[in-house]
Design a protein around this nucleic acid. Sequence first.
DNA 1: CCTCCCTATAAGCATCTGCTTATATAATAA
DNA 2: TTATTATATAAGCAGATGCTTATAGGGAGG
Lengths: 126, 126
Amino acid sequence: MDLFVKIFKALGEPTRLKILRLLAVRPMYVCELESVLGISQPRISQHLRVLKEATILRETKEAQKTFYMINGDIMETSLGDFLEFLRVDLRDLPDFKEESLRMEKLDQDSCVISCKTGQGSDLQNA
Amino acid sequence: MDLFVKIFKALGEPTRLKILRLLAVRPMYVCELESVLGISQPRISQHLRVLKEATILRETKEAQKTFYMINGDIMETSLGDFLEFLRVDLRDLPDFKEESLRMEKLDQDSCVISCKTGQGSDLQNA
DNA sequence: CCTCCCTATAAGCATCTGCTTATATAATAA
DNA sequence: TTATTATATAAGCAGATGCTTATAGGGAGG
């Protein structure tokens, strides 16, 4: 889940989306991105770092230049994984261990209509 | 592009991802989410609003309760659209009109190795 | 009516984020 | 060496974000 958050956070910024879209055309040097985007070099470097730390990009050093490219089929893969994450049984997700139990308890008590009551019966098990 | 940013920004937050994952099991009332997640009601309401404004969720009012659910197949659709957005020709994206031109110019001048020079020839057209 | 229940919203606060300017680092060229 | 090119990083600041506490408002039931 943490990786999904990191990836989505990286994608949820207009400048970074633009960089990603340009690198989808072809890998580029930082200075090329600077020319094409028309924004400052530090600004680009900072966004590239975020995208790289989210495993979306990877880099290759060439002399003084740095060549940035999309990390393989990361987008297809990770977005596919995310849809799968939404589909699988909640009990199979370690991050949702407690939530899974509370939800089953809640479904058992489905005869109880009030939320307040449901919460009460839940607290008995907390 | 703005919608993509909005969607990814909404997804790039752990609490919201958890809410989304729970609603992938079944639609729920706010008070149910409160019980299952074990976090405060205002906190949930605020996150629900963000997800709703990103078109990820929709709501149905039932008396005092509000029923939240995932907005159809929004995730499959929008993530598919995003992959398509990364694939299409840059010139077909209105948001990349200027970038598209600058990039073509940059590719024309590919004989010029230096970024500095490339930037110079680009500025001639600015 | 009055009182809960459910939800939304507002205010205040601490943290995070993205930008600019300035500087550091490293490789290349003169 | 000194200067230049390419990139990364740091500092500082304004605005955004997420949380808590408090409150508002609408419906249900006594």
